[in-house]
Design a protein around this nucleic acid. Structure first.
Lengths: 122, 122
DNA sequence: CGTCAGTGACTACATGTGTAGTTTCAATGA
DNA sequence: TCATTGAAACTACACATGTAGTCACTGACG
């Protein structure tokens, strides 16, 4: 059901999530700022995403306009759940604990997260 | 540098992280409780992991004993960092915020994490 | 001493992924 | 009108991955 999005495809999606619809060339222009890919590569990725119905296409004269069909939030939720399930037994606490232990959490991060959690409890 | 571990390979690693060294057959016995794979499949995965120097082999008569060469914690740290970088711009707070919004955090989870953070600040 | 079971080594093969090149077709400008 | 250009479609190809099958060897058992 949940269509798989590969790493390279994900880079393309990020561009479309920022702004859409876009033509292939416009997408490539954006993507190239990050990744050193050719226009053809980006087009291939767009085709694959379209084939999987992860992006939609709309004819605009001689070219196509591409738009995401999957919400970024939904994608993140799916991937995050999968991640936490596979690596941390589905529990978020061990993930946070691990990040903390690995010094991936700054004091600021900790304050931010505490703030966020306080909000949530309301 | 950081050798890539695929999903299937990860399942094998989890067994070895729990107990090692083990023979291929012992690993397979454990893995099969989770995944419906044949002995051959597990052996292939072990070979690939050995080829990547993610597990080490030690001759024991006619067979091999396999042990992880990578710490589970180090692996988790690498994968987590990569995950947070790619999907949340390297910041943990948005990840937690997202999980919360997606209702992946129970009230208990929140309490646990708050507790954990309090500990950290000491 | 010969046979068998267990083991690693090698081979296989479809599908996914990263990364493009080539072809074709249609619109556009001279 | 005809060549040029830009876009999509099709083709390519090596390496990774999931998932095994087959082969050859060796020690143990009868």
């Amino acid at each position: 059901m949940a269509e798989r999005i590969s790493d390279a495809e994900h880079a393309v999606m990020e561009v479309l999530w920022k702004r859409a619809p876009l033509t292939a060339t416009e997408v490539a222009d954006q993507v190239v700022r990050e990744k050193d890919w050719s226009l053809q590569t980006v087009k291939t990725l767009l085709s694959r995403l379209a084939a999987k119905a992860v992006v939609g296409t709309e004819r605009d004269g001689r070219r196509f306009l591409y738009s995401p069909l999957v919400e970024r939030d939904d994608y993140l939720t799916g991937v995050s759940r999968n991640f936490v399930d596979r690596l941390f037994g589905g529990k978020v606490t061990p993930l946070v604990a691990h990040l903390a232990e690995a010094d991936e959490l700054s004091a600021d991060d900790i304050r931010e997260i505490e703030e966020l959690l306080r909000e949530l409890k309301k």
